[in-house]
Design a protein around this nucleic acid. Structure first.
Lengths: 344, 344
DNA sequence: AGAGCCAATGTAAACATTTACACTACACAG
DNA sequence: CTGTGTAGTGTAAATGTTTACATTGGCTCT
């Protein structure tokens, strides 16, 4: 079992107590910043701690049923740029508040998530953050959310870009419905009526976007042509060749729920001599770094993932502090970023 | 402290012992797959465990100085695409082997890393993985690596794309020197001699790439013009405007140590009517998804991060199994991916 | 001066496990 | 029939904290 040279007996609270001539209770109080310790004693103990380089044993601390100051983060896949940046922001916020993060990439199915959540709970984490994917409110009926409510019986659960209600469950989402409605409306107002809608998932967010798209068309008196709503893979070449083979459907604009798909559409236009934005307007989603790679640069929706994460973490910290009046749901407004693939 | 309904007393090893009519020692043995338990007893205990949904308390287990089956991962920044994909691969490999990952994003300085490593060590992790940045072997003399050797006294340390030697330190790197040498040579053979070298860091990898570039020029009998080696930010618009203001230096090709910078160069060419690849060849690095966003698509070096991560994890698991003859260093070959920004 | 109080500190129980060592049968050799 | 070995199991110590409760000594109030 790893012949590591870890025989150097760790100094413990007793050693510190002895060094500073007090009891272990007092040492513990100093370590935990308990106010009922005299300045003089505190100074002595601090000195001993500094001298020895003592750090409390986390497991012994944990045994006392207390907070381990560790948060579990569950993402379906961290290879996805959107999710990895979410993890980055979450990590940052929580570290600043003194929490550690255990990361698990679960995959997309409910079963996978359930297993991983169980493993996280075993580590006695203080809360779980689920980064959006397929949840209640999505079109995926098969995605049972009971496991989330079960987890919420043990620790508070925070969902990013998903919507599940229940005791001890807190959701934060970007306002994808509104953003999608606004984009679609803007396309219509700039003279487009045949708007191809590309989507790659059946998540809650994807569903909100689709609703916004439908509503905007309805409000403009345009009836929704179901063939214009296309589910496809979020891969540039896939979308490109998809559009190349979509001869039977006419469209004057593309609204994609992810930048990757939008870039696929752009590349289709470029290689077929279609002028962007005049003949074809294109809007992506997520405002990723792909947007400024292309020429022309891609208009996109900034879904404010940074703010969503901050909101989530702020509320998480509040909850863990014992604050009761924390809202269960919170919505963050998106922002349309106009670049060169649209003429509005 | 969080008014959670956690009053439901956790079932512990004593409960299981009672349910199955054995002692806690026996339960513990069953849980840990200790062979000296009779099949009959084992079955009884298993049944009780299943009935009750018992899971051992990790803290109590941890107190006994044993493996927590948790690995600490330290990345300077997970917002970087290269690093986030590395984390994804590592996570995947380690989970398959039954390890959990604690992630910390430290920032780039030695001090930051040192602090974060200390915090990781407090959690009694079994090993640390440092994902590449500024290490020994880099140009950054100020980057002291003592903290790595100190950490290695407690747990094995694995470094991805860095080179530090020392007891209990294991390094895995892609062969950036060779790849860079090959790219530069290919550019020269395709008739280029004024190769602008763009780099954004002083890491070990960056340094290896620079050495490869120099060596290739030397071997071809071309003397290195130091003005051709430019340190810049890895941001598309920054590089674009940098090149727009580089009127005094002539160049017929750009070799960038990251795709982002290469795309910046490409956009500079596109907006200045410079033909790519004829007037200007461009090669990036990392073979990220940016490569297929642009038109023309970007030639790049695939540095096989997936394989590097797998190698690292395989050796880590070996070490933790107690295997002694694990090599301290391992190198993975890169692969040049030819696309449309080069004419070779 | 004695009662009462409070701040500061100490004592010991509780947390849930692992494991060295002790013990009990029982089989089998002599 | 006694002694010895062993498979299976139990006992109890050890792990390092936190914290409710106990204790102490000094102070104030009457």
């Amino acid at each position: 079992m790893g012949e590591i040279k870890n025989d150097n007996k760790m100094i413990n609270i007793y050693d510190i107590a002895e060094m500073s001539g007090v009891s272990i209770a007092t040492v513990s109080r100093v370590v935990n910043n308990n106010p009922k310790v005299s300045e003089k004693t505190k100074a002595k103990v601090m000195e001993a701690i500094k001298q020895s380089g003592y750090t409390p044993n986390v497991f012994a601390q944990g045994l006392g049923l207390k907070s381990m100051r560790t948060i579990g983060i569950l993402v379906p896949s961290i290879a996805d740029m959107y999710m990895s940046s979410a993890v980055a922001y979450i990590e940052d916020n929580l570290h600043d508040a003194g929490y550690d993060c255990i990361l698990r990439c679960s995959g997309y199915t409910a079963e996978q998530k359930e297993t991983h959540i169980q493993l996280l709970l075993n580590k006695k984490i203080d809360a779980i953050i689920l980064v959006g994917s397929t949840y209640a409110g999505s079109e995926d009926e098969s995605h049972n959310t009971d496991y989330i409510r079960t987890a919420a019986k043990d620790v508070p659960v925070f969902i990013i870009n998903g919507l599940v209600d229940g005791e001890n469950i807190y959701c934060t989402a970007s306002n994808d419905y509104q953003a999608s409605y606004d984009v679609t409306t803007a396309l219509i107002e700039s003279g487009r009526s045949k708007i191809l809608f590309l989507t790659d998932s059946r998540s809650y967010s994807a569903n909100q976007k689709k609703k916004g798209y439908r509503q905007a068309l309805n409000n403009a008196g345009i009836s929704v042509d179901e063939r214009m709503i296309i589910h496809t893979e979020n891969k540039i070449p896939v979308v490109k060749s998809l559009l190349e083979n979509t001869k039977d459907i006419e469209f004057d604009s593309v609204f994609a729920t992810d930048d990757g798909m939008a870039i696929g559409a752009l590349k289709y236009a470029l290689s077929n001599g279609i002028d962007v934005p005049n003949q074809l307007s294109i809007v992506g989603y997520n405002n990723s770094n792909l947007c400024i790679c292309s020429e022309p640069e891609l208009s996109s929706v900034d879904n404010k993932i940074e703010k969503v994460c901050k909101d989530t973490c702020d509320r998480l910290i509040d909850i863990l502090k014992g604050n009761d009046n924390v809202p269960n749901q919170s919505v963050v407004a998106c922002k349309l970023v106009k670049r060169a693939t649209t003429d509005f």
